[in-house]
Nucleic acid binder design. Structure first.
Lengths: 144, 144
DNA sequence: TTTATTTCGGATAAATTTATCCTATTTATA
DNA sequence: TATAAATAGGATAAATTTATCCGAAATAAA
């Protein structure tokens, strides 16, 4: 469904959010340990999230990654997915046709519509706040 | 969503079905031309579909690939997806956790459940017959 | 200003997926 | 039986994704 890079990106953002609520910045080392991902690769993904203004980075001593506490609720999963995997999940044809729409549909166009729309809706409605709070409360997990 | 191999496999199976209704066998060359895919790679995928008993192959002169006319309606998309991509779409965790279920959910487990179930249901309920008939009637397309 | 710490970013390598090529094997027909 | 036509399958290459390494740049604090 998502690339590994995207999975790491989502989990990293959630973890950063939980720490940002505590006013703490986190390093790629802490992040990769917490989400069980390769450190250097995760660092690359964090760079991408920074460039897309989804998370903030602070260089130098006592630096690290963080998200503005007041903005955590505004960050939608769709932004993260879009930043890393692009919009192919929404806009792309399920069977890879170059051109696929109501007027020139692939064989599964209509049947996929529901699934795609539900996925899109879910990603656009889910924000980091609720996901981070569920992690903090122990209702959900980032690894294992 | 699906691998390219799987996209090719689905489109190839649909095309074979349309030809099988006419009692005609088709070659990898015809198939790849019709679904706009690399011929040799497509041939490998056809081999996999044969091994999974989703399509039949007949070697030698006047041979080719076909599907029993009486069985076309019984072939579900889920069988093709399963044969090529495995069951990761259904059973795998959306964020790649090794263990992810009600008791130990990833952050998006519940939110993904609906999407996954709808996708699964759609793949299990859609058969080659309806897809092939839509191609024959010009209601849907396999390329461009 | 120096030092320690930390992200940034380029180069490269490993793994996986996608794709190609060529020979062997099978089979219908002349 | 010989021949032509077709799938089967192994070896290999190209492209993409995933992953690692290391030096440069930036920054806080001593």
């Amino acid at each position: 469904m998502f690339s590994k890079a995207c999975e790491y990106g989502i989990k990293a953002a959630i973890f950063i959010a939980t720490k940002s609520y505590e006013g703490k910045r986190v390093s790629p080392k802490e992040i990769s340990a917490e989400i069980d991902s390769p450190q250097a690769f995760t660092a690359k993904i964090l760079q991408a999230l920074v460039k897309h203004n989804i998370i903030n980075s602070v260089k130098g001593a006592y630096g690290g990654f963080e998200i503005d506490k007041t903005n955590i609720g505004n960050v939608k999963l769709s932004q993260i997915v879009n930043a890393i995997d692009g919009d192919s999940i929404y806009s792309g044809c399920g069977l890879g046709l170059e051109k696929c729409d109501e007027n020139h549909p692939c064989p599964v166009h209509d049947k996929f519509k529901g699934v795609r729309d539900e996925l899109k809706h879910m990603l656009e409605e889910t924000n980091l706040e609720e996901l981070a709070l569920n992690i903090k409360s122990g209702a959900s997990f980032l690894k294992l």
